[in-house]
Design a protein around this nucleic acid. Structure first.
Length: 261
DNA sequence: CGTATTTGACCAGCGC
DNA sequence: GCGCTGGTCAAATACG
C-alpha cells in the first residue's frame, strides 16, 4: 500500500513540477509579449512623432487643436499636453479613471462641439498643477477625448481605480472603426494616445499580427492559452485602466521620480 | 458637517 | 473698442 501511496505522491509531485514548468514557460511568453508590445508602442510613438513634425505647419481642423493650440501657441508651450482617447462608460459621464484623483472645477459648452467640456484639476496633491479637459468626441459620442496639461508633482495615486473618489469613469475597450481622428497638437511637447484601439470587438478579437507570429514559435496549446489569457486581460477594464495609468504616467509625469531626487 | 459637484459670473486673449 | 470664446472662480447645492 505504501508503495502505491509513494507512486501517487510522485505523480502528484511530477504534475506539480510540470505545472511549475508550464508556468515558467508562460511567464517567459508573457515577458516576450510585453517586449513585443513595448516595441510596438515605441514604433507607434515614433510614427506619431514623425507625423507631428510633418503636420506641424498645417492648420488644425478639429476641436482640441483649435482650442488648445491657441493656448499652446501663446506661451503655454512649456505646459506638457497629452491627449488620450477613451471609451465612455455606460453611465455616459465625463469622468475617466486614470489613477489620479480629480476635482471638477468647471464645465463649458464649446463652439465646435455640442457636448459639454468638463475641466478637472488633480486633487491627489494640493500643489499638483496638472489639469485635464474631458469632452465627448464630436464624431463619436461614445469616445471621450481627454487632454492632460502639465506634469504631476507627485507619484501615481495608490488607488488606481479611483475608489476614493466619487468618480466612476471607465477606460474600456474600443469601438470598432472609430470615426474620430486624433487631433495632434503642433506642440513638440504634446503626445497622443488612443486607448480606444486597445482591442477590437470581443467576438473577433485576435492579437496583433506581430504577436501572433511571435507566439507561433512556441507550442500551440500554450499559445492558445496565452491568447485567451491576453484577450481576457484586454477585456478587463481594471487592467486597461492600470495600463492606461502606467502609460499616462510615463508620458505625463514619467520623470517625476528621477526629478524629485 | 465636511467635501465634491454644479453652474452662472467673471476674466483674459484674440480677431475684426 | 467691442464682441466672441475658452478657461477659471466661487457661491450654492448635493451627497455621504
Amino acid at each position: 500500500m505504501s508503495t502505491q501511496q509513494d507512486i501517487s505522491d510522485k505523480e502528484k509531485v511530477q504534475a506539480l513540477e510540470a505545472q511549475i514548468e508550464s508556468l515558467h514557460k508562460e511567464n517567459e511568453e508573457l515577458k516576450n509579449m510585453i517586449g513585443v508590445m513595448t516595441d510596438n508602442y515605441h514604433n507607434l510613438q515614433a510614427h506619431a512623432n514623425s507625423f507631428l513634425t510633418h503636420e506641424a505647419g498645417r492648420p488644425s481642423e478639429s476641436w482640441s487643436s483649435q482650442d488648445s493650440s491657441k493656448k499652446q501657441m501663446k506661451g503655454t508651450l512649456k505646459a506638457k499636453s497629452t491627449q488620450v482617447l477613451v471609451r465612455m462608460d455606460a453611465e455616459g459621464s465625463l469622468i475617466v479613471k486614470d489613477g489620479y484623483q480629480w476635482r471638477k472645477y468647471g464645465q463649458k459648452i464649446t463652439k465646435d462641439n455640442p457636448s459639454p467640456r468638463a475641466y478637472f484639476r488633480c486633487s491627489t496633491s494640493s500643489d499638483c498643477p496638472v489639469r485635464k479637459k474631458v469632452q465627448r468626441c464630436a464624431g463619436d459620442k461614445s469616445i471621450l477625448v481627454v487632454t492632460y496639461e502639465g506634469e504631476h508633482a507627485h507619484a501615481l495615486c495608490d488607488d488606481p481605480i479611483g475608489s476614493t473618489s466619487r468618480t466612476h469613469g471607465t477606460i474600456n475597450g474600443s469601438v470598432p472603426g472609430i470615426p474620430c481622428t486624433v487631433p495632434l497638437n503642433p506642440s513638440p511637447s504634446s503626445a497622443s494616445l488612443d486607448l480606444t484601439l486597445s482591442r477590437t470587438n470581443d467576438a473577433t478579437y485576435r492579437p496583433p499580427q506581430n504577436n501572433n507570429h511571435h507566439l507561433h514559435q512556441h507550442n500551440n496549446s500554450n499559445t492558445n492559452f496565452l491568447v485567451e489569457y491576453v484577450a481576457s486581460l484586454m477585456r478587463d477594464p481594471n487592467f486597461i485602466t492600470a495600463l492606461a495609468a502606467a502609460v499616462g504616467q510615463s508620458m505625463i509625469g514619467g520623470h517625476d521620480h528621477t526629478k524629485k531626487k
